[in-house]
């Protein structure tokens, strides 16, 4: 199975993502709570939007943000 973002080999436990994108997704999900606490109110879509706009955000993390945003929209 290939990664749904980059076509690298997906990791074994069938997440649909390669090692690197899987790591990004785990981090994005884990840090959502920190962002929510920081801003008080923040929904998932705005979070992904803001995260993808930050210059500090890693390129692979940004790719995951675009992917997650689209998935929600679709």
């Amino acid at each position: 199975m290939k990664c749904r973002i980059c076509k690298r080999e997906a990791i074994e436990h069938n997440s649909g993502f390669c090692l690197y994108h899987n790591e990004c997704i785990t981090k994005i999900e884990a840090d959502f709570e920190k962002w929510q606490q920081a801003y008080g109110e923040l929904n998932w879509q705005t979070y992904l939007q803001r995260l993808s706009e930050r210059p500090e955000t890693g390129n692979w993390t940004k790719e995951c943000c675009y992917f997650l945003k689209k998935r929600k929209e679709a």
């Binding site: 840090d31 962002w35 920081a38």
Partner: peptide, 12 residues
């Protein structure tokens, strides 16, 4: 490189 590319910043 992986640390940088997978980085998720948090605000303060």
């Amino acid at each position: 490189e992986v640390e940088i590319r997978t980085f998720v910043p948090t605000p303060f």
